[in-house]
Nucleic acid binder design. Structure first.
Length: 283
DNA sequence: CAGATAACCTGCGTGC
DNA sequence: TGCACGCAGGTTATCT
């Protein structure tokens, strides 16, 4: 469900829950069968500590306590919610983990498909986590620029859309925003990454930053079950131009938006605005 | 090594 | 109403 704007929005919401004086008194793992298998004892070191801050790296949330970092990835369907003591703390389907505070507040992780990640790392060891080590630059960071892309994509034959979604090249861009960025940049999604021209990289980089920031400002994209930490839906779905719009007219030129599966994921583009120039040359 | 595909899960909408 | 099927915002193991 969540790409960078959604995770960033969740992060901002959870930071509003923060109460650094509120000590963790109990942790409960109902099911640890995620992408990384975990046991309840893995999280016990949190007891007696408190959280100061939540940061985001790529699509990961990092909850900082005194000596540990709780690593959380939402996968496709993960979510965090806060429940106060006194309110009936009913366990709902797919609640897998919760943290209880001295105040009675409880933070609960729910994830129907269990594609998410939960893990507890020592603060000093975070930079050595393999998944985090392999991540590329943040798209909103100046290090993500046309020169970097051109070099990183040199000679790569993989489709530009798949390249953009590969977290080793740039993080945070998933299936929705990849189609949206390429539409605004007017680049065909199937063009080999190594054949993208410098002027097109400039467009891709600029629109990546622009669209992701705009989506953050809108609180993310809610298509089905994504919610902000507050429980409210995002609003960016009203601003999507091509995602899930196959058969509808392109808002730019009126042509029919097309769709095709690329790397196993649905991909949407306008055949007129996004000319597949270098693909045609090959024929 | 790069690149393509399958696999991990549950839920929901569609068509028969 | 029931059931088979395809599809869903992500990542990674496993093939060629």
């Amino acid at each position: 469900m969540p790409e960078l704007p959604e995770v960033e929005t969740v992060k901002n919401g959870i930071n509003e829950w923060m109460s650094p004086q509120d000590v963790i008194t109990k942790v409960k793992l109902i099911c640890g069968d995620f992408r990384r298998k975990v046991k309840e004892r893995d999280f016990k070191p949190l007891i007696g500590e408190s959280f100061n801050l939540v940061n985001r790296r790529a699509k990961y949330l990092l909850f900082f306590s005194q000596k540990h970092v709780l690593l959380s990835h939402l996968g496709m369907t993960g979510s965090w919610r806060k429940v106060e003591e006194g309110a009936f703390q009913k366990q709902i389907k797919h609640d897998h983990f919760w943290i209880q505070f001295q105040s009675g507040t409880r933070w609960i992780f729910n994830d129907p498909r269990r594609f998410g990640v939960l893990d507890l790392l020592k603060r000093d060891h975070v930079s050595q986590d393999r998944a985090l080590m392999e991540l590329g630059p943040e798209p909103l960071d100046p290090h993500f620029n046309p020169q970097y892309c051109q070099e990183q994509a040199y000679d790569k034959k993989v489709a530009i859309k798949i390249w953009l979604m590969n977290q080793k090249n740039v993080v945070g861009i998933g299936n929705i925003y990849a189609s949206e960025v390429l539409f605004r940049a007017r680049v065909h999604p199937a063009i080999p990454a190594g054949k993208v021209q410098n002027k097109d990289w400039k467009q891709i980089v600029w629109w990546s930053k622009s669209i992701l920031q705009e989506a953050i400002d809108h609180g993310g994209t809610t298509l089905r079950d994504y919610r902000q930490a507050s429980g409210d839906p995002g609003a960016h779905q009203q601003h999507l131009l091509v995602y899930d719009q196959d058969g509808h007219p392109c808002l730019n030129c009126g042509s029919e938006i097309r769709s095709q599966v690329l790397g196993g994921r649905s991909t949407f583009w306008c055949p007129v605005c996004q000319k597949d120039t270098c693909l045609s040359e090959r024929n």
